[in-house]
Amino acid sequence: MKKIVSAKEAISQIKDGATIMVGGFLSCGTPDKLIDELVAQNVQKLTMISNDTSIPTADKGKLIVNKQVKKVITTHIGTNPETGRQMTAGELDVELVPMGTLVERIRAKGTGMGGILTPTGVGTILEEHKETINVDGKKFIFERPIGADFALIYGSKVDKYGNVTFHGTTRNMNTIMATAADTVIIQADELVDSINPDDVVIPGLFIDYIVINSGENE
C-alpha cells in the first residue's frame, strides 16, 4: 500500500534548494494542487525541470512569478513572458533543451543508462561545448542523464497500489518523470481500489506518495 497523504504533507518534504521535476504540457496533465502547495509553503531556490513554464497565472507559471525558481530546465518559455523577463534580467537561469532530448535524458536517468546520443541539434549552437560521437558515419550529440530529488506528477486515476491510468493527452512527461526522481508524488483525480492490470500505464512501484485531488485528505 502506498502512502495517501494531503498535498500539504507531501510538499512539506521539499526543502529550499531542491530539484523538482513537474509533469504536464502547459496546464494539461499538470499537478496544479501540488504546485499551489509549493507556492503556499513558499519553498525557495528551486531547480525545476518541466516541459514548459505554463502561463503566469497557472500552475508552473505561478512558481516563476513568485520567484521560487532559480533555474529552469525546459523546452519552451514562450507562453510565460515572466520567465523571459526574469531570464533577461539575470534573475533566473534558463536552460533550453529540445523536447526529445529532455525526455530521453530523464528516461536515461530512470532506466539507469549513462546518457543518450541524439542527432537533434547537430550543426546548431546546441552542439557547442558538447561531446559529439560518430556512429556509422553519422554525428550525434552526447547528453547526460538528468534526475531530480522530487517528481511532482499527475494521473487521472490511481489505485491504492500506486498504479496509474490516464485520460486524454495528460500523460506527456508524467510517465517518464515517475522513473527519475528519488521521491515521486502523484496528484490524481480519483482513487480506486484497483486498476485492471491491462490498463495500467505507470506501474505502482514508481510511486511513493499519493495525493487525491478531491480534497478529502486535506
Binding site: 514548459d52 525546459t74 523546452t75 519552451h76 518559455i77 514562450g78 523571459g84 531570464m87 534558463v94 533550453l96 529540445p98 523536447m99 526529445g100 532530448t101 542527432p119 537533434t120 541539434g121 547537430v122 546548431t124 546546441l126
Partner: peptide, 12 residues
C-alpha cells in the same frame, strides 16, 4: 527566446 519545444527533433 521562446525556445525550441519539439521543433528541433521534428525537423531532424
Amino acid at each position: 527566446i521562446p525556445g525550441m519545444g519539439g521543433s528541433m527533433d521534428l525537423v531532424v
